[in-house]
């Protein structure tokens, strides 16, 4: 009797030991995979935090040789560029997504889907060059418009594919219920299916925005940069990412520090956006869990 319980205790201890070993390995794997992120974060905070002050957010860049100044024009510029990109990219991308999900069985649709997938993996600098040829050269100048169009092309595939995936989650019988009420298909699609999914679609849109907000390469050939305030949509415009690039390769310590400040701001933006999207999705998912 006692030998049996002893034996059981032995097995039990062995199992516990194994369990702890596995747990330790999992924790280790987590640390290893998260380490680069935290290292980048820590480094950027260390170097960038000191550059963030009131002037940084409110002033134009100081002339060469003078210290101080800020990146206010670049912040505003990035906002304007992302705004232009959104005006073009969101309706376009969402429309493609609706088409792929609601009429996605045709041959045309599979060609469109393939093209969208290809577009995801096209290097952003190539998009920049393309817009340079398409808009900058004919318009004879770098411009905010060209930069916005370049960014919009990068937004479209992300938005289209997330919209498609989200709409596909709605079962076919919900669409039939709409049709069964004597509502034409286009109204069912827009006012029942799409409107019912606005929340998750907007999270896809926000992720696309956070992605293009940090893009640098496509802006180098399109929006260029500027040391002044926004001067019109057909003029070159400053942007945070290009300003970081210019300052980081400059020989002046003050500028380099401001580049770190800008980098910190960008990373914070992406971080906050991603976090809030996660929280939003978590909420909608839990409320969806009650359905059916």
């Amino acid at each position: 009797m006692s030998s049996l319980s002893e034996q059981m205790e032995h097995t039990f201890r062995l199992r516990n030991l194994k369990s702890y070993c596995m747990l330790a390995m999992i924790v280790l794997a987590f640390v290893v995979s998260a380490l680069p992120l935290f290292a980048v974060f820590a480094h950027i905070i260390k170097l960038g935090f000191s550059a963030l002050n009131f002037d940084f957010f409110t002033k134009l860049p100081a002339p060469v040789g003078e210290s101080g100044g800020g990146l206010a024009n670049a912040l505003l510029g990035t906002a304007i560029l992302v705004g232009i990109a959104s005006v073009i990219g969101i309706p376009w991308g969402v429309s493609i997504g609706i088409y792929l999900s609601e009429y996605g069985k045709s041959k045309t649709a599979s060609v469109v889907r393939f093209c969208v997938d290809m577009l995801v993996s096209i290097p952003s600098i190539v998009v920049g060059l393309f817009i340079y040829e398409l808009i900058v050269i004919p318009m004879k100048g770098f411009s905010a418009n060209a930069g916005g169009v370049a960014l919009s092309i990068l937004m479209i595939p992300t938005i289209a594919r997330t919209t498609e995936e989200i709409l596909k989650l709605i079962p076919a019988h919900v669409r039939e219920a709409g049709l069964g009420l004597g509502i034409p298909r286009w109204k069912v699609t827009l006012f029942i299916i799409v409107r019912g999914s606005l929340m998750p679609i907007s999270t896809g849109v926000i992720l696309a925005i956070s992605r293009v907000a940090g893009e640098t390469a496509p802006l180098l050939f399109t929006a260029l940069s500027s040391r002044f305030w926004f001067d019109g949509f057909n003029k070159p415009i400053a942007s945070l990412s290009v300003q970081i690039f210019n300052y980081a390769i400059s020989p002046f310590e003050d500028w380099q520090s401001q580049a770190w400040g800008g980098a910190l701001l960008l990373v914070l933006f992406v971080f906050v956006v991603n976090l809030s999207v996660r929280i939003l999705l978590l909420r909608t998912n839990t409320s969806k869990g009650k359905q059916i």
Partner: peptide, 10 residues
Amino acid sequence: FQRPNPFPSM
């Protein structure tokens, strides 16, 4: 229909 299908987020 077979499954209850209230319209989403309505």
